[in-house]
């Protein structure tokens, strides 16, 4: 993974990510994501790389999804 989904920086280990924050930056290119937050869902999408995570069908409290580390506050595992 090249970029932190919390701050978008390439040199961040993901520790910037705050509890219960959805991903905000594309882990591939670091662009800001279009993020949809509804009562039960979170969907994050990069205009270049498409959906981030596992489409977050029911992502309550587990905002990040596999592709970005699969744990709130632990956004960049790779």
């Amino acid at each position: 993974m090249a970029h932190c989904t919390g701050c978008g920086r390439a040199d961040c280990d993901g520790s910037c990510r705050r509890t219960l924050d959805p991903p905000r930056y594309c882990p591939v290119c670091g662009r800001r994501l279009n993020v949809l937050v509804t009562p039960r869902r979170v969907e994050a999408r990069c205009r270049e790389h498409g959906p981030v995570g596992d489409a977050m069908g029911d992502a309550m409290g587990d905002a990040v999804g596999d592709a970005v580390g699969d744990a709130v506050g632990d956004a960049v595992a790779d």
Binding site: D21, P22, V35, V37, T38, P39, R40, V42, M60, A63
Partner: peptide, 13 residues
């Protein structure tokens, strides 16, 4: 308020 908020997440309903 149950579930997620406007730009941040909440705990599960």
């Amino acid at each position: 308020i149950v579930g997620n908020y406007l730009t941040t997440l909440g705990r599960s309903p």
